[in-house]
Design a protein around this nucleic acid. Structure first.
Lengths: 293, 293
DNA sequence: GCCGGTGTATCAGCGTTCCTTATCGTCGCT
DNA sequence: AGCGACGATAAGGAACGCTGATACACCGGC
């Protein structure tokens, strides 16, 4: 189970073709064929059906393992490389959509002033991508958000020994159209809303699946799906009556035509956590210190 | 970063000796020396100081990665092997100490009756070990426990795509000596007890670190440490006034001289989850069905 | 139905990798 | 100082893994 073989396996599976994978990987088709054969011999199981080239059940299962495995290998390699390389004067920060905040912008500005030579970049990405890129060292720091019980840490995909520190914790609220019958309430229980229509916006609000899990109930019918990462667009949909959404209270309050009613039960908070692998150095250490202060 | 090289690296680090590692792995000392050299060349970093053989900072970091990485590789390999091999008439169940229950014993007995030919084994192990062995297929089913917010799943070390289902959820209680001034209360808040002495029994009760995290506070001074997995022994210490502990209410109630007062805040529950990798088959499927029913 | 095109499997050849054996250099202990 | 244990290094040979050539299966066009 050489990572090498695994890499060509996933490439072949992705392309559905030995030849195409060979081209991408810079091998001959023959080499790829032999590599797959070697992997199948090693695991004593057929992994791919040929013509068409599709994963067998065993292959499908291996694919589930391969991604995280290769990510971890990459993370380990990058981690060591970082220890060896001279600390670069750069600061790459990744944030998930709801982890952004004015205080981040402010801290980033101060850090930039403190380290004028550093090349500072800020990227908004899905939460899992932030974790993955922090693990592989493409990002120096990550800020991810999630809705969790007040006592519990965010769930990190542990591809690598990452450290996480909470930097902000905000109450959650249900975003309702201003004319909604419940919009005058001072608090809402999720259970009472399980029949409502919910906007499913995994990037811009608390995902619907999370709400179902938190309420330990089904229902929670999806209305319009929203693929953007921008809460403003989502809130416009809420205002127009397409459905409800759960967001940090401060975020939900900003849009016209939307009322934000605090989520009373279950007790969830919106927490933003700073993640990095190993102790941050240079500008990253500076920014980290400002954020947790 | 061949797993092969990684394996010899951890072996060398564990033994603190190239020669000893070579003996264990069935190689010559020369081969091990070359493998380490190859790994160091690949990562462009010295990993081990020689004479004495101790990890460098980079090596120490790599060791942190290596364990989970090799576990994942092993899990993937075992996972595929399981798909290929004929389903054996065996049922190996691992449980963490507090995940045991009379209902488990009952279900296990019924399953055994249903599958008289099957070799049934039950092993009590630390929670993480249960996850690891389920991942590598040495166990067919695992039962792990933990104290979490009612809405959140237990945290699984994701070495492998494991599926988890809750099978029991019990309230937690603080175990106090019967003569303790607070033992007559009907509920206790963790915050009010942060000055008390706490028994640290990672295997037999909710770990102290978990309580600190849940209360988001330090304090919680450790008293006697208890290395056993048996709640009865721990409760004897409680009765003797060595310190307090948090356990499932039903468990804490059983011991003489101990009062169990429900934990009112933070809101945590003791949850037992059934874990397996892939859909269970044969006797494992039977037992799983009984447990979640 | 035949034929070319596309795509995978297989084989021979060859360079590289990796292990073993043998030997040397070095450290630590007596 | 000398010995013994340990790791590094050199050389040789087996095994591995890639390329290039070729065989074989499938599909579509005519």
């Amino acid at each position: 189970m050489d990572p090498h073989l695994l890499r060509t396996f996933v490439t072949v599976a992705r392309h559905g073709s030995f030849s195409a994978a060979a081209r991408e990987l810079g091998y001959t088709q023959s080499a790829v064929s032999q590599q797959i054969a070697a992997l199948e011999a090693d695991l004593r199981a057929p992994l791919l059906g040929r013509r068409p080239v599709v994963p067998t059940p065993a292959g499908a299962r291996l694919l589930e393992h391969a991604g995280p495995l290769l990510l971890r290998v990459e993370a380990a390699r990058a981690d060591i490389a970082r220890l060896v390389a001279a600390p670069r004067a750069r600061l790459a920060v990744g944030v998930s959509a709801l982890a952004q905040s004015p205080s981040l912008a402010g801290a980033l500005a101060q850090t930039h002033r403190q380290h004028p030579g550093a090349e500072v970049t800020l990227r908004v990405l899905p939460g899992e991508t932030v974790s993955a890129l922090v693990a592989t060292g493409e990002l120096d720091l990550g800020l991810i958000d999630g809705a969790v019980a007040p006592t519990d840490p965010l769930h990190l995909p542990d591809v690598s020994p990452l450290t996480a520190r909470a930097v902000a914790e905000l109450p959650l609220a249900v975003a309702l159209p201003a004319h909604h019958p419940l919009s005058a309430r001072t608090g809402l229980r999720l259970h009472d809303l399980s029949d409502a229509r919910w906007l499913d916006a995994p990037a811009a609000a608390v995902p619907l699946a999370r709400l179902r899990a938190a309420a330990a109930a089904d229902g929670f019918r999806p209305a319009v799906g929203y693929a953007g990462a921008d809460p403003a667009g989502l809130l416009a949909l809420v205002a127009a009556g397409h459905g409800l959404a759960v967001l940090p209270h401060a975020t939900a309050e900003t849009a016209p035509g939307v009322r934000a009613v605090p989520l009373a039960a279950p007790r969830l908070v919106h927490r933003v956590e700073l993640i990095h692998s190993g102790p941050p150095t240079g500008p990253a250490a500076d920014l980290a210190a400002r954020l947790v202060a």
